[in-house]
Simulated assay, not measured.
Amino acid sequence: MTTTKRFLVGAAARNNAEWCAVMSRSHGVRGEFGRQAWTAPARTPPYYPDAVTLAPGADAAELLDRIDTEARGASVKDSFADLDLTRAGFRVLFDAHWIHRPASAPVTVPEPVWDVVRTPQALRAWQLARAGAADDAALFRPELLDDPATFVLAGRSAEGRVVAGAVASRSERVAGISNVFASAGGAAAAWPGVLHTVERLFPGLPVVGYEHGEDLDAALRHGFEPIGHLRIWLRD
């Protein structure tokens, strides 16, 4: 791995950990940043890890001591895919790639119209469009709207209905993108609008995130490059 890619992976991991910390705080769970990892002492919201490594070669035993491994469902985002947690009862849930897109890459002005969600009512509509069901619609809580580094992005039809969206998380060196969706066409349909909006919000910042499977293919078609592996571990 080149020095540039190593730097970008580190920046992407830190950005993602900061977003996980924000999401967890909105659910009343306060994590802690250490030298090697961000960790949460209690179970984090669904789909969010209890730990995110921030540097290669993290001490697995020390990391696991800082999260709740007694209850089922503990998870670790192994940002450098260099841990072996099998002896602690974890299994690999999936592998993925960190991705990067330069800030200077051109973006075609998209349709539909995109904006930043500002109110709890608008966030509720965004969640229902994303989840497609009420069960997951409580995951994104209004407290997120108070975080100065978090931007919930919504693409709206001519009638004002949310048809696409994403979450942008700004950190010192990068803008992180997650939760990309579109009601028709999947993530591939959302990326042009997401990138256009992010460039408008954070001019000059490179864009990072992580994807796997078809969503990774969609990101690569929109100017991203894979910069490193990561692994999600789960303890059933």
Rank of each mutant, 00 (worst) to 15 (best):
residue 82 D to P: 11
residue 22 V to D: 07
residue 23 M to N: 13
residue 55 A to C: 09
residue 42 A to H: 14
residue 20 C to Y: 07
residue 68 D to E: 14
residue 33 F to E: 04
residue 12 A to Q: 02
residue 90 F to P: 12
residue 53 T to N: 08
residue 34 G to V: 01
residue 101 R to Y: 07
residue 18 E to Y: 00
residue 34 G to E: 07
residue 29 V to W: 00
residue 52 V to K: 04
residue 97 H to M: 13
residue 48 Y to N: 10
residue 29 V to S: 03
residue 55 A to L: 12
residue 86 T to K: 12
residue 10 G to H: 07
residue 54 L to Q: 01
residue 22 V to R: 07
residue 54 L to E: 01
residue 73 G to Q: 09
residue 31 G to H: 00
residue 95 D to E: 15
residue 71 A to N: 05
residue 56 P to T: 03
residue 76 V to Q: 00
residue 13 A to T: 13
residue 42 A to C: 12
residue 15 N to I: 00
residue 43 R to W: 02
residue 12 A to L: 08
residue 35 R to N: 15
residue 90 F to N: 08
residue 80 F to G: 04
residue 46 P to I: 02
residue 100 H to P: 06
residue 25 R to C: 14
residue 14 R to T: 09
residue 74 A to M: 02
residue 30 R to I: 12
residue 45 P to R: 01
residue 100 H to R: 00
residue 70 E to L: 06
residue 15 N to V: 00
residue 39 T to R: 12
residue 103 A to W: 04
residue 63 L to R: 08
residue 17 A to H: 02
residue 56 P to H: 01
residue 55 A to E: 14
residue 74 A to S: 15
residue 91 R to I: 13
residue 25 R to G: 13
residue 31 G to V: 12
residue 68 D to H: 08
residue 90 F to L: 03
residue 70 E to D: 10
residue 89 G to M: 01
residue 98 W to S: 08
residue 18 E to G: 11
residue 48 Y to H: 10
residue 77 K to R: 13
residue 36 Q to T: 05
residue 64 L to N: 06
residue 19 W to Q: 11
residue 27 H to P: 12
residue 65 D to M: 06
residue 97 H to W: 15
residue 37 A to D: 09
residue 24 S to T: 06
residue 47 Y to G: 03
residue 39 T to K: 01
residue 74 A to E: 10
residue 16 N to C: 05
residue 51 A to H: 05
residue 96 A to S: 15
residue 66 R to Y: 01
residue 68 D to S: 14
residue 80 F to H: 09
residue 35 R to L: 13
residue 41 P to T: 02
residue 92 V to C: 11
residue 85 L to I: 11
residue 56 P to R: 05
residue 86 T to F: 09
residue 76 V to N: 02
residue 76 V to R: 11
residue 100 H to I: 07
residue 30 R to F: 14
residue 90 F to G: 12
residue 44 T to C: 08
residue 18 E to M: 06
residue 33 F to H: 10
residue 19 W to V: 07
residue 99 I to N: 09
residue 69 T to K: 01
residue 58 A to G: 13
residue 18 E to R: 04
residue 67 I to Q: 12
residue 99 I to W: 07
residue 38 W to D: 01
residue 104 S to D: 11
residue 99 I to A: 10
residue 36 Q to E: 13
residue 43 R to P: 13
residue 47 Y to I: 08
residue 31 G to D: 15
residue 85 L to P: 10
residue 47 Y to W: 07
residue 104 S to G: 11
residue 102 P to Y: 03
residue 55 A to S: 09
residue 41 P to N: 05
residue 101 R to V: 07
residue 15 N to M: 02
residue 67 I to P: 14
residue 36 Q to N: 11
residue 42 A to V: 11
residue 43 R to H: 15
residue 66 R to N: 10
residue 14 R to I: 05
residue 68 D to K: 02
residue 24 S to I: 05
residue 88 A to H: 15
residue 28 G to M: 10
residue 67 I to H: 12
residue 76 V to F: 04
residue 12 A to C: 07
residue 74 A to N: 03
residue 100 H to K: 03
residue 99 I to L: 10
residue 41 P to K: 01
residue 78 D to I: 09
residue 66 R to W: 01
residue 92 V to T: 15
residue 24 S to E: 04
